[in-house]
Simulated assay, not measured.
Amino acid sequence: MKGLWHDLRDHLRIDFRSDLYLSTASWLTLLLTINYTIDLEDSYIDTYQGDPRWPILYFGLYATTYYVSVWLWTYFHKRLDVWKNREFWLRSGCALVCYSVYSGFYAHSDWSRQLFDGQIYVFAYYCLHNLQSLLTIVLPLYLFYKFVDTYPSSFYGMVPKRKGLVLYLILLGLMVPLITFASFQPDFLESYPTYRDTNANEFFGVPEWVTALVYELCYGWDFIPTELLFRGFLVIGMSRVLGRGAVLPMIVWYCAIHFGRPLGEAISSIFGGYLLGVLALSTRSIWGGLLIHIGIAWGMEIAAFLQRAAH
């Protein structure tokens, strides 16, 4: 555990510049202000749901957040050569296309209508929504890893490592009181639990906890591709080009994918994303991040279930 804290201090010592971090914080503040003032994602981008322009709009949002952040890092660290690097454009382009398609993917709606003649449409929709990342993120990144990546070592941090496991467990434990506090807030209970009562358990003739468990497993799966792309591909993979500079632009984009969530969650993603990015760079593994990410996600689900049961 001491080694990881040492790695975190080293990262800050090497990468930290007050002008860069202040400029990045200002860029993040501007993005958050715009989104939560005009409700950019929910009221504008998501009105194109099911339209071919939907993923294109997401691409515009994510490319803007990411490339401006990269420009800030390259400017202050005097690394403008990055913009002439073919590897940078291949990796960033692949990541942006994958996640934009994932965000604007809607074929699972038709699949849900066809499955069992649409009798369990709502349940199937949310399960398939969480599983579609197999096609839109995991498969493309694996193909990139096998046929494009010139420095393949492991599949972007998917190899389990024990380094830092205690620290990750401590960090997860520290989140428990925060999740408990958040569960008493009205905006939290508007978003969680993400599981909604459907007729699926009646259709299959099973208790509702069974269909809830199936849903939660699908919900938990969806965090694996997120960690794979943001901490694995954009940090461990992109460090081949940007070195430690891969972390800062990643957290700005990572914050942007939370624009449809409560403001507090979007802000906390900045700090959580930064810490997980540095630790992924140190351990060359995303398993610690998966532990925290899925643990927090299921923790929020459980807290919301308990609050709902209490009322």
Rank of each mutant, 00 (worst) to 15 (best):
G3W: 00
S183Q: 06
F76G: 06
Y21V: 10
W111H: 13
L31N: 01
L290S: 00
H11P: 01
W209F: 11
D197L: 15
N35G: 13
D42E: 09
F230M: 10
D7S: 14
V101R: 05
L189Q: 14
A246K: 07
G289H: 07
F203C: 03
P207K: 00
M238T: 05
H77G: 12
L234C: 06
D7Y: 10
D7W: 05
Y151S: 14
S183N: 09
Q119F: 12
A310I: 00
G289V: 03
V166A: 13
V176S: 08
K163L: 08
T65G: 04
V214N: 10
L291C: 08
K84Q: 12
G220T: 10
K146G: 00
L96Y: 00
T194L: 14
K78M: 03
D81E: 08
L90F: 10
Y58V: 11
W111P: 07
W73Y: 13
G205Q: 04
P262N: 15
R284D: 13
F181E: 08
A212I: 09
P160W: 12
P249N: 02
I38Q: 07
V252C: 12
S109H: 15
T136S: 01
F184R: 15
T194N: 12
D117W: 08
M158R: 04
L281V: 00
A303L: 06
F203P: 01
V176R: 15
R244Y: 06
G157W: 03
Y126W: 13
V278E: 14
S268W: 03
L135W: 07
G277Y: 12
H258Q: 14
Y102R: 15
A256N: 06
W253H: 04
